[in-house]
Design a protein around this nucleic acid. Structure first.
Lengths: 332, 332
DNA sequence: CTGTTAGCGCCTTCAG
DNA sequence: CTGAAGGCGCTAACAG
């Protein structure tokens, strides 16, 4: 009932396990006749070599990398996962998936579980700003790549977006259009993207001689519902902002819903493109980039370190930046 | 440079590897004093037990299940993946991810690769209607669960949606509203959902005394762009349909874009809910269900078979159906 | 309480 | 060309 082993095949074929092992590797030192006999026995038993045992013996890894994302339901992360999967598959690597649900504690557990499974490397989108538990030293020395968050502090490679520049450019567009009261809606400042995008917002305003007003800023919004509520509040005050910048797709969508419900004429801008961005009933500026590319780049960096740990150990943490472009959608 | 082994720890602690093994399992037969000494040595070396070797020795599996989806970029599948991950994590199982890209050949490769990795089971969303390569017999006897496609033919469990009933109900709503010329837009008939939803469409029309007209039906559309083009064509004829039913979210979105561009007043209905369904500028009927639930149910079925192969081997292929509801969104 | 022996499934090395 | 011995890292089963 349990899986046949090389021994079973060997005895069936009337040879030693060693010969089976060689035949399976198509070793040239086995005669064609024997090879054929072995392969027949393999088929007869439905035998498949145990790659796990093989890797153990060869001291090789299992060609597996771990991917930890905060929330796979966000299209951003599923696209990123797709990019990782594609590059990994090219080098015959499997991807084991973990969803942290924005919980750093869970993220730590996942990383440790992965390390125990003797995977070859980890790609993570960290949930908070404390990344100590993702340090390779704490994970059996496995190489790690961070995405959407810099890894220099823990000495690992990272792939970033141009959060600062992209936001700046979008805000600039709003200013060009004559807006002077521009609100900011975003996630917690504890996330890298959240704080960088906020920095970009502030910098762009100041560059234009405008000041950042607390009453136009609302942060800590992770989901659409919370963002919608916050946007409504921002708009419900004397001298409301005439434009809102939202720091990610959840916030943009929340802002859109709020503005729409209030029948306001607020202009919108947001980080992250999304499927319906072009058919909304409001003008919208979007900071676009390719989330798949983030995954691809991260996987590429990781694979380099995995393929040649000796050489790359000497290489200092690298930081790749994926560019962003600003897209203007007209109102529908 | 390479990972320390139990032997290293043992010699450092001045005991035998066996004692380390026991100490690590917190075996009561080891004295507290020795245990402490061993644990110190473990910390000193940064040692972590090799779970892979351990599982090999114990004849245990690696608590890993494989998930094969057609396209993770589709929110439907990423939600499904989330459901699978959640249930798997509850039983300490890892999920290894494969994206087939709608390619049955690739799906086969993935399944075989997974089987070679000695994973415990596979959950697949099949790309075509030929599922022979997903038969457990061809995958070292690993249990398999199919989602969104029945598994009876290859003798495996499956989790389905009420494709037929859900579609019927949506079409009924359109008929109630007075539509008699209702178009159908959908994916290839080679997919289970594609053909079931088409069946539901036909049945509902016939039940109401309406006939299915070829010129109102367009199939084989996998992506938004192709669906949009096809919808435009359906609407560009004498006596165009006054309503369109789209068999999945890609097609619904394509249809929406076409109708919107033509400034037509066509009513829309579609299978799959989606994020902006409630704020479109057209009335929309949607067949809604919980894609995560699909993943959860699939993982639950699989885990049952994994946990007790002896008992469940006797159980015939099961088929779980996830219910759907019809939601009516007003025009914005 | 601790150590020795043996072997999970496979492959390297060394004999035939 | 083929086989036997030994061991990857770990742990049952049996000694002491």
């Amino acid at each position: 009932m349990s899986d046949p082993t090389m021994r079973d095949v060997a005895s069936h074929a009337g040879v030693s396990p060693m010969t089976v092992s060689r035949a399976l590797r198509d070793d040239s030192r086995v005669s064609e006749r024997t090879k054929a006999r072995v392969l027949d026995a393999v088929d007869a038993h439905g035998y498949r070599r145990n790659e796990v045992a093989r890797n153990l013996r060869l001291g090789r890894s299992h060609s597996l990398l771990g991917l930890i994302v905060t929330n796979l339901a966000n299209p951003f992360y599923s696209q990123l996962a797709l990019g990782v999967e594609a590059v990994a598959a090219e080098s015959g690597m499997g991807v084991i998936l973990g969803n942290s649900g924005e919980n750093p504690q869970r993220e730590r557990e996942l990383a440790q579980d992965f390390a125990l499974r003797r995977i070859d490397g980890i790609i993570a989108v960290p949930a908070g700003h404390q990344h100590g538990h993702l340090e390779p030293a704490k994970l059996s020395g496995i190489p790690v790549v961070l995405t959407a968050s810099p890894g220099a502090k823990i000495g690992v490679d990272s792939v970033l977006l141009d959060d600062f520049g992209g936001t700046w450019a979008a805000i600039d567009k709003l200013i060009e259009r004559g807006h002077t009261r521009i609100g900011f809606l975003g996630p917690a400042s504890s996330t890298w993207t959240g704080s960088e995008r906020y920095r970009g917002y502030c910098a762009a305003l100041e560059e234009a001689g405008l000041s950042v007003e607390d009453r136009y800023v609302s942060r800590n919004h992770l989901d659409v519902a919370s963002a919608e509520q916050a946007a409504a509040k921002l708009l419900d005050q004397p001298d409301p902002p005439t434009a809102l910048f939202a720091a990610n797709n959840r916030n943009t969508i929340g802002a859109y819903r709020a503005v729409r419900k209030l029948h306001a004429t607020t202009s919108l801008a947001g980080f992250d493109d999304f499927e319906f961005a072009d058919v909304l009933s409001l003008p919208l500026i979007v900071v676009r980039y390719d989330p798949r590319e983030l995954g691809r780049k991260a996987a590429a960096l990781l694979c380099e370190r995995i393929d040649d740990p000796q050489r790359t150990r000497a290489i200092a943490p690298r930081q790749v930046v994926v560019p962003t472009t600003v897209v203007e959608y007209g109102a529908s």
